[in-house]
Write a protein that binds this DNA or RNA. Structure first.
Lengths: 150, 150
DNA sequence: TTAAGTGCAAAAGCTTTGCGGGTAG
DNA sequence: CTACCCGCAAAGCTTTTGCACTTAA
């Protein structure tokens, strides 16, 4: 992510915190920065690795709590995936994912036709939809190559 | 799921096992039956609860292993979701999900327009898509009602 | 000042694995 | 017979929590 975009995202975060009356701490800022630097839908643990490399005093619990609160105020999102550890996504606008069913990799993909998809009426379920996302499930390049050589 | 459909699914399973050279054990059969009876995308632990209620000798490890092998041969699938425990889906044909971002509930939804969506070309990613699924993320009826009363 | 966040360590929840024994084919 | 599966228990990984202390506003 380029420097300017990153700066803008951080400003958004500051503003949301002021609005919500949340103290803006160094640790949460570090977690947000790590998320913006990582563009591969990391687990909480991987975010902790990155944060701890820059400041080894930040605890794992703080990273878990920070990611949860960032997601709650909508500065980051949780990604849908078939695996066992929660995956966070620094992008909040609508976009779509390639999901590898072998290695659980998540790859961003944009497609005008997918973006133009109308949200179906789900009122009969009593369900209020906030966002529509398409998942293209399959096998990524690396996993296919690994299978070929075996 | 009606009796006839269930019987058909079990036959499919027997056939796939014969084809793949996998022994067909009582325990795996019990896990498959539990999945077919549960229609709410359960976690492995919930499947174990159901299986154990019918035969308390079936261990948790066996249920985890059985679900994994059923998914590997394609008799069930893993569902994409934002939570922390793996969720299994007894449906294997393409369908779509409402995903509650509050309680992680997953609700099946079918929509002709969504089903008709063409799979975008992902060859530039080296990614081979096996299936396209739409997730409508939002808040389910129960969670909205809970929020209103609080 | 004070409400909220933090670090630590322990607990809790989810999943895998090693191993001796069992079973389908 | 033989490869694969099972139950058990232990280990491993992921996430949450209680508590005393710190900090942003």
């Amino acid at each position: 992510m380029d420097r300017q975009t990153k700066q803008r995202r951080i400003e958004t975060y500051r503003r949301r915190c002021r609005e919500g009356g949340l103290p803006l701490t160094e640790q949460r800022m570090a977690v947000l920065e790590a998320m913006l630097d990582l563009d591969d839908h990391p687990t909480a643990d991987r975010v902790h690795d990155v944060v701890a490399r820059r400041d080894s005093r930040v605890s794992r619990a703080t990273v878990y709590r920070a990611l949860e609160s960032l997601a709650r105020i909508g500065v980051i999102t949780k990604a849908c995936h078939p695996g066992k550890a929660v995956r966070y996504d620094s992008r909040t606008e609508t976009h779509h994912h390639l999901v590898c069913l072998r290695c659980d990799a998540i790859i961003d993909v944009t497609d005008d036709r997918l973006d133009a998809l109308p949200v179906p009426d789900t009122s009969s379920y009593g369900f209020v939809v906030s966002d529509l996302r398409v998942q293209l499930r399959g096998v990524c390049r690396r996993c296919r190559e690994l299978e070929e050589t075996s």
